[in-house]
Amino acid sequence: MYYLHSLGIFISPSIHFFLQEGVPFDTIILILMLPIIATLIAFFGQVLGIKAFGIYTPLIVTFAFLATNGIKYGITIFVSIILIGMVMRFILKPFRLLYLPRVAIMLTAVAILTLGLLVFGGGLRRTGLAAVSIFPILIMITLVEKFVAVQIEKGNKAALILTLETLFISIIGFFIASSEPLIKLIALRPWVILLTIPLNILLGKWTGLRVSEYFRFREIFKYL
């Protein structure tokens, strides 16, 4: 067990070794958080029935949130991108374009307007917004394609619900991944992340009703 002076926490020998090899502490923690967030998303999907856009999207949005300066900017960008995506679909509808070009135009619009948002943030002296690095923004722009695909497949309402679910999971993921006790625990005992494997095996064999299904089938209960 070593003591990391810069953060004032105890770390395990393996983490100490990684640090000595030049891997930044934040990167180590982010990577080790990945299985935990992924398990969280699996739990939300299998047991609670909150589906979001698969596992990848909420995961990467969580990390995008972690990489923006404060979650409020992350959420602002997220919401404005989805809003722009919705408006653009409405505008592009009468043109009846093929799928890929349509999404390309949508992405262009989202990109331009996101840039506008950053400038606007700067104008309001919200320098935090303008200082958000490009990668989390790019990550969130890719959301648009997911959103559009679901929108076409299942309609506006379903797409919006999945988006809100994604946002919900990502916010929870953000708070878990940035919670100090958890970071301390992982720094001290990195092997705990292996516990997610048996946990996921249990989740993968879970055949009970999801919490959302109790709600979905509520009418049937009256007749059983």
Binding site: W206, T207, G208, L209, R210, F217
Partner: peptide, 14 residues
């Protein structure tokens, strides 16, 4: 009663 109802998890797995 809930054991009478088929959910997504059970449908897929079983």
């Amino acid at each position: 009663k809930s054991r009478q109802i088929l959910g997504m998890n059970s449908r897929n797995l079983e």
